[in-house]
Write a protein that binds this DNA or RNA. Structure first.
Lengths: 213, 213
DNA sequence: GTCTATAGCTTGATAGAC
DNA sequence: GTCTATCAAGCTATAGAC
């Protein structure tokens, strides 16, 4: 945060992230991105191979950091339980808390990236491929931990439970303000603290209900 | 279903529904839609005012029917309980079952429409507005029923619980095959019967956990 | 690294004949 | 209702000067 003005490449990535998040990949032109980045169109092709490459770099810029803090959170939980298995709540909290925390504390920095992930996760064209590539190695690690916490759980129940978790989590990322409308202002899409208080309990109860039928 | 070949207007709507679902509104051109509908580009503008109007008609074509079958399912549950309140499971089942059933039994007819809804629900640009407009009158009706089934439930817990439900349900609609990859083939995105068996129990447990903290 | 200029194509939409 | 023909605008991407 030392420099006042980010280098051009970063400004392009910032602008692309925000616009892709709002309008989707096809809904935005390179020209719009460069206008928002306050740089000439041709610079997009100096810094990136193509529009698709720009999109890929937007995705890659933050994904490793995200996966690392979630892995650390899981390892911290496991270290607190050297003998027994951690609870389902603790594991789910390690999965969701780092993201919701980031979104609460550095909202402007992270908001658009998470919105992008929400759309990708629900895109028939890209959801299966990109989410698998970027997140499933980490997700498998969490599912292994959940399997130990729910030792008699059927495999299908486990994976479908994760699927429900994934949908709930990523819709939260989308911050569409639908809940603001529906609740008449009682709840706000951007209120990550309220979600953090509720989501792990909600989802843990779901896992346990399915795995003890 | 008497006519072998649908009238042009219906063929355009079918093609638009499928392509919008796969690629998003901006990801598809009117030309592509008309190529798939096997009709000339100019016919799009004879039958519809604009690309945006075509999209709106795609949405409107099925939404009333969906809302009516879900309302009927809720009313049937309430008629089975003239004196006491229905259970949370029964209410959630009435909310999800009609859709998953449709998707299971007439998959080709409904798949793309539901995929479209999944993307809209998670779109920062359209989610808040369109989901509110098309579905929230019905959703309020369901939330009223849930409030009676969970009489001491805090309002915020109730709305956030619905939000988690909405995310889980619409990711299911997206059928991205991510769970196929993640589970190594143990689960399949298109397997609505498996979801129908699991989702109401998972979500009902979540509602009850949040509302009895 | 940044600019001008432009190639080559596709887009949404319309006018007008039949 | 359906076709041909067309327009103005916007698109991705590149070549080449500085």
């Amino acid at each position: 945060m030392a420099k006042e003005k980010h280098p051009t490449r970063e400004r392009i990535l910032d602008a692309a992230e925000e616009l892709f998040a709002n309008k989707g990949y096809e809904g935005v032109s390179v020209r719009q991105i460069m206008r928002q980045a306050d740089a000439d169109v041709s610079l997009a092709y100096y810094h990136f191979k193509s529009k698709q490459d720009l999109f890929d770099q937007v995705m890659l810029r933050r994904v490793e950091y995200l996966n690392s803090i979630r892995l650390k959170a899981l390892e911290a939980v496991e270290e607190r339980h050297p003998d027994d298995a951690p609870s389902v709540e603790e594991i789910i909290d390690a999965f969701t808390h780092p993201l919701l925390d980031l979104l609460a504390k550095e909202h402007d920095e992270w908001k658009y990236y998470f919105q992008l992930i929400a759309q990708i996760n629900n895109s028939p064209e890209w959801g299966g491929e990109l989410m698998t590539r970027y997140f499933d190695p980490l997700v498998r690690r969490f599912i292994d931990a959940l399997r130990k916490a729910l030792p008699d759980c059927d495999e299908q129940d486990l994976f479908w439970s994760y699927h429900f978790l994934s949908g709930a989590l990523t819709l939260t990322f989308a911050e569409t303000k639908r809940i603001d409308n529906l609740s008449g202002g009682v709840c706000r899409s951007s209120d990550m603290a309220s979600i953090n208080e509720r989501m792990p309990a909600f989802l843990a109860a779901g896992f346990k209900a399915l795995c003890s039928r």
